[in-house]
Simulated assay, not measured.
Amino acid sequence: MTASPRPAPEFPAWPQYSDEERTGLIRALEQGQWWRIGGSEVDSFEHEFASYHGADHALAVTNGTHALELALEVLGVGPGTEVVVPAFTFISSSQAAQRLGAVAVPVDVDPGTYNIDPAAAAAAITPRTKAIMPVHMAGLVADLDALAKLSADSGVPLLQDAAHAHGARWQGKRIGELGSVAAFSFQNGKLMTAGEGGAVLFPDEGLYEQGFLRHSCGRPRTDRGYFHRTSGSNFRLNEFSAGVLRAQLKRLDSQIDTRERRWPVLRELLAAIPGVVPQGGDDRADRNPHYMAMFRVPGIGEERRNSLVDELVARGLPAFAAFRAVYRTDAFWETGAPAETVDELAERCPHAEAITTDTVWLHHRTLLASEQDIRDTAAIVADAVAGL
């Protein structure tokens, strides 16, 4: 492929910040208490984040992976248990379970939405299953009607991996109004960020109190005698990160509005390119924050897909190859892997196998650009695909 004369679109920088973040950092600095016990920024952020998502309780933690690990621990996951995860997801979804000594059980995903297939999840449940973890891929909420029924019928709780889904809705309900625990990430590329960070939404006070204890080494908030009530670790978020996140939360809605306007334009343009299939949607997911703009080129194969990504990057697009199926990484097999072989898992996860090799995603700042930049983006994709 040769370089295109088409000029690269002008995408906004990420992360975005303003005097709001500076004010938050100074506020945290000048309060004189820089950790959450004694400071006020983390407490304030938790209240604001919970309120924004319609949840009763939020617990801020060190990162999104720790958010998943902590949530799973609160739900009773540990050695000898199993957690059902989508085969197509970032590795943290499976590693959070494996770090607790549990077995991560990968199941297939829908070929259009890339979200966990409820029927595949149902088939994977055993008496050892302690949690089902739908991942809201690229911000598109998974089929929570079917998954909530599965949870109710089986007695296995859901843990929403909402690392991509800040501000998302399902049939008018926010993530915190859907009755299950949800975990978020604030890593540098996420929809709101402090470089790192995470949060867990809890639907009731009992689970929240367990989470608080475990995220603070098992120590109650008012303890002065080192009476650690449970096992745990130090997953506490610092005050400076919380000050930044409070500012990030304030601009999230307007950014989602922009991406919601831009994605239909880009989707239509991508769908018109021969061989390109953009990520599908679900009308019940009535607010999608669009963490990624994803599309498939079915049949392209991993090597040519990777060449396509390289070409898009060379032409100025923030393009990436899709996640590798979790069982196609060495890390997955180190601990907490199921009894099946790679080939056996691949056979029962054909859609995850295909998506792993033929999918490209564009960073969400693409969808914060102008409509003309969106059109230029699609034109660059069309040029690059035609040149394969």
Rank of each mutant, 00 (worst) to 15 (best):
H66M: 14
H57N: 07
V77M: 12
G78M: 01
T65F: 14
H53K: 11
E41L: 10
G64I: 04
N63H: 10
D43L: 14
E82D: 11
N63Y: 05
E46Q: 15
S40T: 14
H57Q: 06
V42T: 06
S40F: 00
T62A: 15
S40M: 11
H53C: 06
D43I: 08
F45V: 12
V74C: 13
H53D: 07
G78T: 06
A67F: 02
G64Q: 06
A58Y: 03
E48K: 12
A55P: 04
V61T: 08
Y52W: 13
E73H: 10
G76A: 10
F49E: 06
A58E: 03
P79R: 13
E69C: 05
T62M: 13
A50H: 07
V74D: 02
V77F: 04
V83L: 14
P79E: 12
G80H: 07
G54T: 01
G76N: 00
L59I: 10
Y52G: 05
S44Y: 00
S51D: 14
L70H: 03
T62C: 11
S44H: 13
A58W: 01
L75Y: 03
E46A: 10
G54K: 06
A50R: 08
E73L: 04
V74F: 06
L72F: 07
H53E: 10
H53A: 06
F49W: 14
E82C: 10
G54D: 01
L72P: 00
A55E: 05
N63L: 02
V61A: 05
A67Y: 00
E41R: 10
H66A: 14
S51M: 12
V83E: 02
F45A: 13
V42F: 09
E48V: 03
A55G: 11
F49N: 09
A58L: 09
H47E: 15
Y52D: 02
L68R: 01
L72N: 00
G80D: 11
L72Y: 03
D56I: 05
L75V: 03
E46K: 08
G54L: 03
G54P: 01
G80L: 09
D56N: 14
Y52T: 04
L70G: 03
V83T: 09
L59P: 04
T65V: 06
A71E: 02
E48S: 13
H47L: 15
Y52V: 06
T62Y: 07
E46W: 04
A50P: 08
G80I: 08
H66I: 15
V61N: 02
F45T: 12
G76L: 09
V42I: 10
E69S: 12
A55Q: 09
H57A: 05
E46H: 10
T81A: 12
V77P: 05
A50V: 04
E48M: 12
H57E: 04
D56T: 12
V42W: 05
E69T: 13
E48P: 01
N63G: 08
N63W: 02
A58G: 09
E48G: 04
S44W: 02
